[in-house]
């Protein structure tokens, strides 16, 4: 065999590590690199601009940041698999609110009150079932009608929000259960309950997407639906499962958040879908489907939360924060395009 690395059939043993195309590596790792940059930037900038006396990188501050990124983070993780699958779900914010109402309101029902603290797991189940059922409706409609998920969930976003208002009008729905609050505020190994839920969800979904048949098929469907159908993959059930998953996760997010806060306004969760999509896209998942990674979405979630907190820390107001996040999103996508183009042959005349 020749010395050169010239490519011949027999040359490389099969599991010789094949480097991923560089652009892909850059893009997948990029979001975490960006997170590190943000950390450096805000710690340095904070020295000069912040009037708080704790450092930005203060441990408690960081733990809190993780906790606060959990509600949208959990939804964004679900959004990742829906988007890899080639769909999108705009109704997650409304699902979040409706599940929250079910969570809090169910604990005030007479038979539930009679159960004492046993009402808590039951209320959770009710809330999670609500979210899953709403996701089921989305998935079934997308599957059976063949209408684009964007349209279907745009409709259900409005519809589910309508249900939220029908429940209690403009009034907030409240119920504070101290056992629940204690649970939500607990810290295990330093991390808050919400953070554990976020990390747990990420781990499970990462396994689902990389290790299971469902995950493999979801990628295939998102990448080339026709080829997937030709391989005997039933597209509909995978859609349905993913919509149920994201519905479940929107409810889980509500469970995590409202266990502590104890009060839902009918407008809660609005724009969550957009924040979730922003995090997913920042993490490098393609809107068109077929590509994406759970771990990168986690990076996207942390990156956004860091920006919000960091900008606040150096004294920017909310409007500025949104403007900056918007600009960064566009810049990142532009960069991603540039990197992906280089060395790939997709470029056409």
């Amino acid at each position: 065999m020749a010395q050169t690395t010239t490519f011949t059939a027999a040359a490389p043993p099969d599991d010789a590590p094949v480097r991923k195309p560089r652009s892909q590596l850059v893009v997948q790792g990029a979001i975490w690199g960006f997170v590190v940059l943000e950390l450096i930037f805000f710690s340095v900038a904070g020295r000069f601009l912040s009037n708080s006396d704790t450092a930005f990188l203060d441990l408690d501050n960081m733990l809190l940041l993780l906790k606060q990124s959990a509600p949208i983070g959990i939804i964004a993780l679900g959004m990742t698999i829906v988007m890899i699958n080639g769909n999108i779900d705009l109704s997650v914010g409304a699902t979040f609110a409706l599940s929250a109402i079910v969570l809090l309101d169910s604990m005030t029902w007479p038979f539930m009150q009679a159960l004492g603290d046993w009402a808590i797991p039951l209320a959770w189940i009710f809330a999670l079932a609500t979210g899953t059922a709403l996701g089921f409706v989305n998935g079934l409609v997308v599957w059976k009608t063949g209408v684009d998920a964007f349209i279907v969930t745009l409709g259900s976003m409005l519809g589910y929000r309508g249900l939220v208002f029908m429940y209690n009008g403009e009034q907030p729905t409240s119920h504070l259960n101290w056992t629940l609050v204690d649970f939500a505020e607990a810290q295990f190994l330093g991390l808050h309950t919400a953070t554990w839920f976020l990390l747990g969800t990420a781990l499970v979904l990462w396994l689902v997407m990389t290790r299971t048949v469902h995950g493999r098929n979801a990628y295939a469907i998102g990448n080339n639906r026709e080829a997937a159908v030709n391989a005997g993959i039933r597209v509909g059930p995978h859609f349905l499962l993913n919509f149920m998953l994201i519905g479940f996760l929107a409810a889980l997010s509500a469970v995590v958040f409202y266990s502590e806060s104890g009060s839902v306004n009918p407008n809660d969760g609005m724009l969550y879908e957009l924040w979730a999509i922003t995090a997913v896209v920042l993490g490098g998942t393609k809107l068109a489907g077929g590509y994406g990674s759970i771990i990168s979405t986690l990076g996207g979630v942390v990156a956004i939360q860091l920006l919000r907190k960091g900008l606040g820390y150096i004294g920017a107001d909310t409007e500025t924060v949104n403007l900056v996040i918007g600009l960064i999103l566009i810049a990142v996508l532009f960069l991603d395009r540039q990197l992906n183009r280089k060395g790939s042959e997709e470029l056409k005349t």
Partner: peptide, 29 residues
């Protein structure tokens, strides 16, 4: 390209696409 391959996936996953399910142990590939 249109009907046979998932261009963004690797060689092995493309080849085993119709049978990932048969090859799996439980839900895992």
């Amino acid at each position: 390209k249109g009907q046979g391959l998932v261009l963004g996936m690797n060689c092995r996953d493309n080849m085993t696409l119709p049978q990932v399910d048969d090859l799996s142990t439980g839900p895992f590939v």
